[in-house]
Write a protein that binds this DNA or RNA. Structure first.
Lengths: 196, 196
DNA sequence: ACTAATAGGGACGGCGCTGTCACTTACAGT
DNA sequence: ACTGTAAGTGACAGCGCCGTCCCTATTAGT
């Protein structure tokens, strides 16, 4: 899970060095030794009574205090508007729900911070549809297929391709190709894309 | 984060189809439609009061009830020996801490289930060392380097290579090569591997 | 009948990771 | 002097992903 976050960061910031810690103490040790430019933290993980809102605040406050120059980004699973506001007051630059963090979206979050000074991404209240992942599909194929399945609401495929293309920085035609390949593979292996 | 788990599963079980749900309701819908062979769930995520141990139990009990034939695996961040035992009584096949779940370790977990009927992986009480990830390193390189940095305790490098080789199903010489390449890259980009 | 969108594929260059094999150098103990 | 262990490099085949370009049908709208 940590590695997944690291890779998100690395995708957003090429040629960066990331240090990771599995608990708060290790993180504090690291911060004492290294001047970080950015700190990404999940206050729900360290384990000091997972449910305690106070402890969560304290974790963030501690990190802020130890390394006030860094951009602090909170990525958590138990998100709430209220906590987001509180963290913002502490100086946190972003408050992102794990449920809201999509692949390759870290870059957009950083852009938003640069523009507005703050980025908040709570979980979608209306609940996302289920996702299907087939082992035979490559990363791009899965991504495109997922996006396509999540937008059946009368929107033209063309438009979806263009959206995807913009989000991934590729050609709309390529996005289309990915979708077609994904569908072909699913058909070949006996799992029609309409299933679910 | 969900995707990371999906990929872990896909690495352990080639040619599988994975359905993912961002919340409990979606999961229940899916289970009603599809006969799953395996269900991986984090009871801390759905959001019904994250800290409530009762709700966590209820989530697992619900899934067990709806799909008793599946192998149920609990992957959670707020792990405890006690909760592990409780879940085991409910029929869960594995109780794994997110902090303990290492890349490509899902296969080993499944093996253990096949052998002992249960697998438990709690967070290491002694706390892991910090990890360093350099964007220029490939996956294997990072993995090998991390493992090497985590075992400075007088163990011969040869032995570490062999351990790695066994874990990754590759040649010990290849593991050695990965370590060397990783180190070379770090030196080249100005970050000596001894830093941290 | 013409046009635009949707659908299904074939082929290809580039690129990076993976996993090997092979070669050189240095330092240690015996 | 000899041998085992380590470090540091070079080269290479295989493979899959990525992103394109191009080519066909079919269907629907005008």
């Amino acid at each position: 899970m940590r590695l997944a976050l690291v890779q998100e960061v690395q995708t957003a910031i090429p040629d960066c060095v990331v240090h990771a810690a599995s608990n708060l103490e290790t993180a504090v040790d690291l911060i004492a030794k290294i001047a970080f430019e950015m700190i990404v933290v999940d206050p729900g993980l360290p384990g000091h009574e997972p449910g305690s809102a106070k402890d969560r605040l304290k974790v963030i406050a501690t990190l802020q205090e130890l390394c006030p120059t860094a951009i602090h980004i909170v990525v958590t699973s138990a998100d709430s508007q209220k906590e987001g506001e509180e963290f913002r007051k502490l100086g946190v630059a972003a408050y992102i729900s794990k449920n809201h963090l999509r692949p390759r979206s870290m870059g957009a979050i950083l852009d938003e911070i640069a523009e507005n000074g703050f980025s908040i991404g709570l979980v979608h209240p209306l609940g996302m549809k289920s996702e299907i992942y087939h082992a035979a599909l490559s990363g791009r194929e899965q991504e495109v297929l997922a996006s396509m399945l999540q937008t059946p609401s009368g929107i033209s495929r063309r438009q979806v391709y263009e959206q995807l293309a913009e989000r991934m920085n590729i050609d709309p035609a390529s996005a289309e190709r990915y979708y077609k390949r994904a569908k072909a593979k699913l058909l070949k292996y006996g799992h029609p894309p309409t299933a679910i």
